[in-house]
Amino acid sequence: LELTLRVGDKTWHFKDVDEEFVRHLEELLKRGAHEREIEEIIREWLR
């Protein structure tokens, strides 16, 4: 999967994204996660 995600003024483009990561992001967005929380999840995933 490829994913382009825009949060606030930042845009990330990922290739070979894990479906579990996408589901986790979807859940965060559904519950109205704040920009900082989403950025933290992305940084963790990139490690």
Rank of each mutant, 00 (worst) to 15 (best):
W12F: 12
F14M: 04
D9I: 02
V22P: 01
E19I: 15
R36G: 13
H24R: 10
L28A: 11
R43Y: 14
E44L: 07
L46C: 04
E2V: 04
V7Y: 05
R43Q: 14
F21M: 04
R43I: 13
A33Y: 11
E39N: 12
L28G: 04
V7F: 05
R43K: 15
R31Q: 14
I42E: 01
H13R: 05
K10S: 06
K15W: 06
T4H: 15
R36V: 12
D16G: 11
L25V: 09
K10T: 13
L46S: 05
E37G: 03
E27F: 09
W45I: 04
V22S: 01
L28M: 11
E20K: 14
L46T: 06
E27S: 12
D16R: 08
L3Q: 03
E35F: 10
D9C: 08
V17Q: 11
A33Q: 06
K30Y: 10
E27C: 05
R31M: 13
E19T: 10
E39G: 04
E20G: 15
V7H: 02
L25Q: 00
E39S: 07
L29R: 03
G8N: 05
W45Q: 06
G32D: 05
D18L: 02
G32Y: 04
R31H: 12
E2Q: 09
E40I: 09
F21E: 02
G32M: 04
E2C: 05
R43N: 15
K10V: 14
R23N: 09
I38A: 02
L3Y: 07
I41Q: 08
E26S: 10
E2P: 02
F21N: 02
I41N: 06
R31C: 04
W45E: 04
R43W: 14
G8S: 01
R31E: 09
E20H: 12
A33P: 04
T11M: 10
G32H: 07
E2A: 04
R6H: 14
I41L: 11
G32S: 06
L3T: 04
V17I: 09
I42W: 09
L3K: 05
F14D: 00
G8D: 01
E39D: 10
R47H: 13
I41M: 11
V17M: 04
R47E: 12
L1C: 12
V7Q: 01
L1K: 12
L25R: 00
E35I: 13
T11G: 01
T11K: 03
K10M: 09
A33F: 09
E2S: 11
H34T: 14
L1V: 06
I42P: 00
E39F: 05
F14G: 00
E44V: 05
T4K: 15
R43E: 15
T4A: 08
E44A: 11
T11D: 07
H34E: 12
H34R: 11
V7L: 11
R23A: 08
V22E: 01
A33L: 09
A33N: 07
G8W: 01
D18W: 01
L29C: 03
H13V: 12
R31V: 09
L1T: 09
A33H: 09
E40G: 09
I38S: 01
I41T: 11
L29W: 04
L3G: 02
G32E: 05
E35R: 05
E44C: 06
G8H: 02
D18A: 08
I42L: 05
E40T: 11
K30V: 11
L5C: 05
L46K: 04
I41F: 15
R23H: 12
V7M: 06
E19G: 12
I42Q: 00
E27R: 08
D9F: 01
R47G: 13
E40H: 12
H34I: 07
L25G: 00
F14Y: 01
D18I: 01
T11H: 15
F21S: 04
E26C: 09
D18H: 09
R31W: 08
R36C: 04
L5A: 01
L29S: 05
D9Q: 05
D9W: 01
R23Q: 08
E35P: 14
E20Q: 13
G32W: 03
F14A: 00
E44K: 09
V17S: 15
L3R: 08
D18C: 03
K10N: 08
G8Y: 02
R31F: 08
T4Y: 07
H34D: 15
H13F: 11
K15P: 05
W45F: 14
R36W: 14
D16H: 10
G32V: 04
E27K: 12
L25E: 00
I38E: 01
R31K: 13
R47I: 12
L28T: 05
H24S: 10
L46R: 04
K30G: 09
R31T: 10
I38D: 01
L3M: 07
D9L: 03
L3C: 03
R31Y: 10
R6W: 02
L28D: 03
E39P: 01
W12C: 03
G8A: 03
T4R: 15
L28P: 01
E26D: 08
R6C: 07
R6P: 02
F21K: 03
V17C: 05
D9E: 09
H34M: 10
L1F: 15
L46M: 11
R47V: 14
V22R: 03
W12T: 00
E44P: 00
V7I: 14
L5K: 01
A33G: 07
W12N: 00
E19L: 14
V17A: 12
V7C: 10
L3E: 01
R43V: 13
H34Y: 07
R31G: 13
L29N: 04
E19Q: 13
L28N: 04
V22L: 03
G8V: 01
D16Q: 13
H24I: 12
L29M: 15
H24C: 04
E35K: 05
W12G: 00
E20C: 04
W45R: 10
I38K: 01
V22N: 01
V17T: 15
E40L: 10
R23I: 07
G8F: 02
E40S: 10
I41K: 12
W45T: 06
E19N: 07
H13K: 06
V7T: 03
E37I: 11
L5V: 15
R36F: 10
R36Y: 12
L1H: 12
R47L: 10
E20V: 13
E39I: 07
L29H: 04
G8P: 00
R23V: 07
E40C: 08
E27Q: 11
L46E: 10
L1M: 11
L5R: 00
D16M: 14
E40M: 11
R23M: 09
E26F: 12
L28V: 08
L28R: 08
L5T: 01
L1P: 15
E37N: 06
I41G: 03
T4L: 13
F14H: 00
E44H: 10
E19C: 10
L29E: 03
K10P: 00
L46P: 05
H13W: 06
E37Q: 11
R6S: 14
W45S: 06
R36I: 12
R31N: 13
E2T: 06
W12R: 00
R6A: 10
E44F: 06
F21R: 03
R6Q: 15
E20M: 11
E26K: 14
E35C: 06
H24Y: 14
L29G: 04
D18M: 02
E20Y: 12
H13D: 02
E35W: 13
K10R: 08
E2D: 15
L5I: 15
E39Q: 05
L28Q: 08
E39C: 06
T11L: 12
W45C: 06
T11Q: 05
K15R: 10
R6N: 11
G32K: 05
D18V: 02
E40A: 13
D16K: 09
I41P: 00
I38W: 03
E44G: 08
R6G: 03
V17P: 05
H24T: 12
D18K: 06
I38M: 06
H34S: 14
H24E: 10
L29T: 07
D16P: 10
E19F: 15
H24W: 13
R36M: 14
E39W: 06
F14S: 00
R36E: 14
E39K: 03
E2G: 09
A33V: 14
R47T: 13
E35Q: 13
R6L: 10
L29V: 14
W12A: 00
A33D: 05
L1I: 09
I42M: 03
L29Q: 07
L1Y: 14
E2K: 05
K15E: 07
L3W: 02
D16S: 14
R43P: 02
E20D: 13
I38P: 01
G8L: 02
E35D: 10
I42N: 01
E39H: 06
D18R: 03
R23T: 07
I41E: 07
H24L: 10
E2I: 06
G32P: 04
W45G: 05
E37A: 08
E37P: 02
H13C: 03
T11P: 00
K10I: 15
V7G: 00
E27Y: 10
R23F: 09
L5Y: 02
V7P: 00
E26T: 12
R36L: 13
W45D: 02
E19Y: 15
R43D: 14
H34C: 03
H34F: 04
T11I: 15
K30N: 12
K15I: 12
E2M: 05
R23P: 01
E19S: 14
L1W: 13
E39T: 11
H13Q: 04
E44R: 08
V17E: 15
L46H: 11
L3S: 03
H34A: 14
F21G: 02
E20T: 12
V17D: 10
R47K: 13
L25I: 10
F21P: 00
R36K: 13
K15L: 08
L46G: 06
L5W: 01
G8R: 01
W12E: 00
D9T: 05
I42F: 07
H13S: 04
R47S: 12
E37F: 09
D18Q: 06
R6M: 13
E40K: 13
R43M: 15
K30L: 11
H13P: 01
V17G: 15
L25D: 00
W45H: 15
E26I: 14
K10F: 10
H24G: 11
